[in-house]
């Protein structure tokens, strides 16, 4: 297992071998249609040494952190933690941020809650 795979497992704390490929996570995922790599595939990407592809996938920014997959997984795998760890591989790199304070004025309106800004900065910026 390469460094990158180990890092994702360490950050996420997930044991990928618990997954039995039932697909319940993907069936529950409200972002399923918009993800190129689906929740039930997250663990196999890590086990098969394709974490780089996972980190570069659209799924990283499409995960809503809604925890439907975590709630419904019968094996307590917590797939949301894997995709979040892949996201962290990105933002923990130099120049890995995908949101800067300069972008904000064009993204907000008069009702944008502070909660949206702090959450987005937590997700898109180191």
């Amino acid at each position: 297992m390469s460094n990158r795979e180990e890092k994702v497992l360490q950050i996420s704390g997930v044991n990928p071998r618990k997954c039995m490929k039932c697909g319940k996570c993907s069936a529950s995922c409200p972002s399923y249609d918009e993800m190129d790599i689906k929740p039930h595939q997250f663990v196999s990407y890590v086990l098969n040494g394709r974490t780089k592809a996972l980190a570069e996938s659209k799924s990283v920014e499409k995960c809503l952190a809604c925890f439907a997959c975590v709630e419904r997984c019968p094996r307590n795998v917590e797939p949301a933690k894997i995709i979040d760890a892949a996201r962290q591989l990105n933002v923990r790199q130099r120049y890995g941020d995908t949101l800067s304070a300069n972008d904000i004025p064009s993204l907000i309106d008069e009702d944008t809650p502070q909660q949206l800004l702090v959450s987005a900065f937590r997700k898109y910026k180191r």
């Binding site: 409200p30 809503l64 952190a65 439907a68 907000i108 987005a120």
Partner: peptide, 19 residues
């Protein structure tokens, strides 16, 4: 108990619109 789109609304309002 389904998601409204959450933080994704900032960068992808179209996803939040759908949800």
């Amino acid at each position: 108990n389904e998601c409204c789109g959450g933080h994704v609304a900032l960068k992808s309002p179209e996803s939040a619109q759908k949800l």
